[in-house]
Design a protein around this nucleic acid. Structure first.
Lengths: 228, 228
DNA sequence: AAAAAACCTGACCAAATGGTCAAAATGAGC
DNA sequence: GCTCATTTTGACCATTTGGTCAGGTTTTTT
């Protein structure tokens, strides 16, 4: 191989980087940046430590890649917010997506939580650009819903924080939740119940369901509440 | 001093332990268990490292003491839950207390979060005893509110998780919140607004306010919502 | 096939860090 | 002022760990 297209990665490289990043996400999530050692990550990826350093020169470079990946996953979910202009539909889709991510990729959420907990040494710039912009634009959408009378008056930002906190809690604190569930993870039915509870409380909490006026209830999505 | 009552600590010891524990809580919160070094903790406490090890033989013993302290603070807040049998009063008091703690002692919450994130190597027994019992008993209270028709049907546990997640978010993720607030912490008015938003959404979310039926609205506590 | 690029790895090193220790300082009680 | 427990601390040590490196192996290109 003399000269390869610089943007093209060899199959070996592709595969090894994937294995390393997967292992790294787990170890960083479980132990934090300082607690994670390149030795352990290499072991879990099934390669010698020196080889890991061939692909990722420093631990910090590796960590950065992991965090960037997390952020992209987050952005994907964030976009589900825009699928509809109806508060019930939009919020249901968004909360649902975030809950699913928490269940499917708890490690990523934990790395993110660790990062914020430690004052975001790596992702501060993302917070100040992408996340800040996204938050402002979605807060505007929520504000519009309020002025249009689609939902009761709420502070959009604190509503968003509440959604983030709650959905990510199922990833970041899953150990606590499991323990309180008798030591076993929530099964599918329980998780579905949790999801419905969250969606139901949020929607009812902002009056996204017909608020106080007994209107014909044009519910497009099933709320989380059982029939009394 | 020849022989002192073993349960009595000298003033020096008292003062030094206090300084060390305060420094330790901060450093453990900012860097996690592994990231924290006894050297840094000693520096922040204003004593040489060897002296710290005179009072706390190992880093783990020190950490354990810090975590135990956190847990006691948490328990104090938890008791506000029981001040009333009325859902609106009880939940308002509880959420309010938890929000205040998040603001006044964010470090403690962060240490707790770190601990759960890392699978609770130190506090697993607390989770399985005290926390589990507390959760079960309060879930029972909430269930009773449901059967008494005081609130709409909800899964009590997922409601509790939502409250924990949201209130602790203001401590654990305060760096993110600050960043999204333009780089400065929430001021008193903003924090009060956040608190009202959380309380309002939760109460309305479970129908703790007169739900859909236009009853005389015997509201004892002001909901978070402005009059439309 | 041969050259060149890419990949792999055991051995090694310097720095950081938890913890020890012996000796010194301090202070209370007689 | 003497005694003894408590407290303080600089120096030191063993281990861990991020990262290097030289030399080897494999793969690709010509």
């Amino acid at each position: 191989m003399r000269a390869r297209d610089k943007t093209q990665k060899s199959a070996v490289r592709e595969e090894n980087e994937r294995a390393i990043l997967k292992a790294a996400e787990e170890v960083f999530a479980e132990r934090g940046f300082r607690g994670a050692t390149t030795g352990v990550i290499a072991d879990r990826a099934g390669i010698p430590k020196a080889n890991l350093h061939y692909y990722f020169p420093t631990k910090e470079a590796l960590y950065r890649r992991v965090v960037e990946h997390i952020f992209n996953v987050w952005l994907d979910a964030a976009n589900t917010f825009d699928e509809s202009d109806d508060p019930v539909e939009a919020l249901t889709a968004y909360i649902s997506a975030k809950m699913d991510i928490s269940r499917a990729h708890p490690m990523g959420s934990k790395v993110w939580a660790n990062e914020i907990l430690h004052k975001a040494p790596v992702i501060q710039d993302y917070l100040e650009t992408t996340l800040r912009d996204w938050t402002a634009s979605r807060a505007a959408v929520i504000d519009r819903w309020v002025t249009e009378g689609k939902i009761a008056p709420v502070n959009a930002r604190y509503l968003l924080y509440m959604i983030w906190a709650t959905t990510q809690h199922y990833a970041d604190f899953n150990h606590q939740i499991d323990t309180l569930n008798g030591g076993t993870p929530l099964d599918d039915a329980q998780f579905e119940d949790a999801k419905k509870t969250v969606i139901g409380i949020v929607l009812a909490g902002i009056g996204a369901k017909p608020p106080a006026a007994p209107s014909p209830a044009p519910a497009p999505a099933e709320p989380a509440r059982a029939e009394a």
